[in-house]
Design a protein around this nucleic acid. Structure first.
Lengths: 122, 122
DNA sequence: TGACTATAATGTATGTCATACAGTATATTA
DNA sequence: TAATATACTGTATGACATACATTATAGTCA
């Protein structure tokens, strides 16, 4: 049996897991490069590891949600990621899904603040 | 390249994935058996597959979050699952984590409803 | 000026877990 | 009596976050 902290850590990773794509897509309203995304999301308390982000970006590109372009005109080369029309559509849909799921889960969790009486289903 | 529907389906599974433990724990304020949990959660728009739930319950039991007891006194045998003190503590913590993450993500998604102007970080 | 750190990205291996598929047993229903 | 619902167990596969390793180079510091 593992420690509570390790368990919590794993559970939190899983909790966070599905939101990572959504978080990343939300920061791509304009072209961004990887490291910039890492920084932006960290600032907004939605941190993601580079080890996670880059494969995720590659995956999304492979799936057609975004495209990438190297910009070699500046001091150092950067690979910019741009949402495709498909990516935008998927983002909107995913956003709606999350909102819906979020509401449902909030209802489930809210039951704790109430009596233990059995309530009629919704 | 897969279809959008398949892609959305996968993304939604991932989105939902981390919330399953939380959903299940939320329904264990009193002892419940597996099939009953499946039904309750389905009613509350938080459906979970039996194939997912049972291994999940076994996992949680192994981790000490809950215990199980066979009730063979009724028409048919049922395995009841009971939150342990550890399980209750983990549930509360996970709940708080979710609320926090939820708020952060809502902020990220809310940016879409606003101008494309760069805003100061929080 | 060389060493160290930050920037920026790629690749491999491992761990976690949802789902597909297969199955068991028995109470209930058509 | 056959089909369906109830209730649960087990194996295999797919998806992906993270740990670990690495490359390259611009910027900073002693």
């Amino acid at each position: 049996m593992e420690s509570i902290d390790e368990l919590m850590s794993t559970l939190i990773v899983e909790l966070k897991r599905g939101t990572l794509v959504l978080s990343v897509l939300s920061q791509l309203r304009s072209p961004e490069y990887g490291y910039s995304l890492v920084q932006k999301l960290e600032e907004k308390q939605a941190a993601i590891e580079a080890n996670t982000l880059y494969p995720l970006l590659r995956r999304l590109e492979k799936q057609g949600l975004l495209t990438s372009e190297w910009d070699t005109t500046e001091n150092r080369p950067r690979k910019y990621y741009i949402l495709s029309p498909t990516g935008k559509a998927v983002y909107e849909k995913l956003k709606e899904e999350w909102m819906q799921m979020s509401r449902q889960l909030a209802l489930l969790l809210k039951e704790d603040d109430e009596d233990d009486t059995d309530r009629p289903v919704y």
